[in-house]
């Protein structure tokens, strides 16, 4: 196996150009090390961990710029993330054990593109942008376009995720990330639901409701019909119930060793309801009647 430790992004990109499908990029290593152990070794390993300044977390252009090498625990420890991106902070806080959070990077979680990746549904809801770099140039794109299937991203085998731009959510918004798993943070989520909303001026209705679903489709997805169903409306029990069912119908979960597709649908329903109720209560000070 060939091994490289590029010191710059362009060096890394030229290695990817050179080795193509044979190359595997490694950052924190929490997924790649398992692959090396249990699958065949890649032809070549490109360790980007030592590229400087790719782990910065800083305010930038009305949002937060996150370097892909920032570890999950660095996100948790960042006041900027905690205060301005609480949805992402909640996802980071429920992301595996402390040992893993100290090692795993947000870029790795994103590029792995596992539908259950903990930070993915929150990034969709936050309408974050991926900064995608190839040897012939860089572009930004929304994560909705970035995620193309399980393990598939727009990076292909030659691109590198070089940054994540997360706009600040609207002032006064509230967001919750709900993860369903038997052992809480320790498990891969059976379902993850991110809900974010704001209230209208007199706090009688929700505005700009965004719902992201993890582990229930080939990629993390938004639930646009459900978002439209509840946006601009006052939440009552009937609407919450309808929204839960609607979100479930917008998911397309599979059955695997963790749970059945049918059960995942029930949980999407339950967590969407719960997320909406929590947002409603936080934004209006009232329980859903």
């Amino acid at each position: 196996m060939d091994y490289f430790e590029p010191k710059t992004v362009s060096e890394a990109l030229s290695l990817l150009d050179q080795h193509g499908d044979q190359a595997e990029v490694i950052a924190g290593g929490t997924d790649v090390m398992v692959d090396i152990k249990y699958s065949d070794e890649p032809g070549c390993l490109v360790n980007i961990k030592r590229i400087p300044d790719l782990n910065a977390i800083r305010e930038s252009n009305g949002g937060v710029h996150i370097g892909p090498l920032a570890t999950i625990h660095e996100l948790e420890e960042s006041d900027l993330v905690r205060e301005r991106l609480p949805l992402l902070w909640q996802a980071a806080h429920q992301f595996a054990s402390l040992q893993i959070r100290n090692t795993a990077t947000i870029g790795g979680n994103i590029c792995r593109a596992s539908p259950s990746g903990e930070t993915l549904a929150p990034l969709l809801v936050l309408e974050a942008q991926a900064e995608v770099t190839f040897s012939d140039g860089a572009r930004t794109e929304p994560f909705g376009a970035f995620f193309q299937g399980p393990g598939q991203t727009s990076l292909g085998s030659r691109g590198l995720l070089t940054g994540i731009s997360v706009p600040f959510p609207a002032a006064g918004s509230h967001a919750v990330y709900l993860k369903h798993a038997v052992r809480g943070p320790m498990d891969i989520a059976m379902v993850g639901v991110a809900v974010m909303a704001t209230a209208n001026g007199d706090k009688t209705a929700l505005d700009d409701v965004r719902i992201g679903l993890g582990a229930v489709a080939p990629t993390p997805v938004r639930a646009p019909k459900t978002e439209a169903l509840v946006s601009g409306k006052a939440l009552d029990a009937a609407l919450v119930k309808e929204a839960g069912a609607s979100a479930a119908s917008e998911s397309s979960p599979i059955t695997d060793q963790r749970s059945s597709g049918e059960y995942r649908g029930w949980i999407v329903d339950a967590l969407t309801r719960r997320g909406l109720e929590q947002c409603w209560q936080a934004l209006t000070g009232k329980e859903v009647a």
Partner: peptide, 27 residues
């Protein structure tokens, strides 16, 4: 476990506990 799930291989690396089974030796 070799998968970062059991913590038996925990070490402190630059001040932080990590599972050494999912850290590349070169790192």
């Amino acid at each position: 476990c070799n998968t970062g799930e059991c913590g038996a291989c925990t070490i402190i690396m630059d001040g932080k506990p990590v599972n050494s089974c999912v850290v590349l030796g070169a790192d």
